[in-house]
Amino acid sequence: MHASYTKYLRMNRIPHMWCPGCGIGIIVKAMIRAFEAVDWSSDDLSLISGIGCTSRAPGYLDMHTLHTTHGRALSFATGVKFARPDKHVVVISGDGDATAIGGNHLIHACRRNIDITLIIVNNYIYGMTGGQYSPTTPVGAKAATTPWGNVDIPFNVTELAKGAGATYVARGHIASGVQLERLIRGGLNHNGFAVIEVLSNCHTQFGRRNRLADPIDLIDSISKSTVNIRQAAKMNKEELDGKNVVGLLHRDEDRMEYCEAYEQIIERAQNAQKNRGRR
């Protein structure tokens, strides 16, 4: 194992509890490489999770960690960042955690543009509780609670984040670890709210019910569904139908970060007080 991985891992907590073949391992490794690339020390990093398979990540990563309640990781993270704006705050979440029970917190974190990096592992299902359909489960897909197929229209997570005001929005997938690391790194470097959706596999709960029980087949089908943003620019609407565009989808460097905006207000208020005193 490369030394950088052990540097960021709580090796005494390994082996982990994720299923063999789960994409979260690839994602955690990409996160660690990104942390190292931007040269962030564990001491300066806070990793926060909610509930679900992703929520175990802070148990294994050796940094300041909070394993919080279902859907609320971003609310806890907002508190941490606001108390210590000098530190780096990263949230790892799943599709159920971030877009169902935590959907409200997601859009408000996007709106505030607070400097937090959110990684959403989208495996299209509630994995930990046994495969109930989530807000990203495709129409027609089978889940423990949709034995005849899902009728709910799924969220487009990146469009949701963009629409709600996130200033860095990217989509990666687990069959392309190098690109994923680059997208996460970009999110870490971005001064504002960054959302990185990662298309991932849950062969145990999603694949098994949808003729993709073999992790390789499922990862393959995810990989085949993706098209790079540069390539997508040359494709028409029909060609893009059913495809997942991956890469950096949106970046806005002009909007002010939330903690900074708050500092400015304090400064303005204090100056006004001083001026009043002078008069």
């Binding site: 509630y126 509780t129 046994g130 109930q132 423990a144």
Partner: peptide, 12 residues
């Protein structure tokens, strides 16, 4: 309903 361990198999 909404899933949560160890209730989930009721709603399933």
């Amino acid at each position: 309903a909404y899933p949560i361990t160890p209730q989930t198999t009721i709603i399933e």
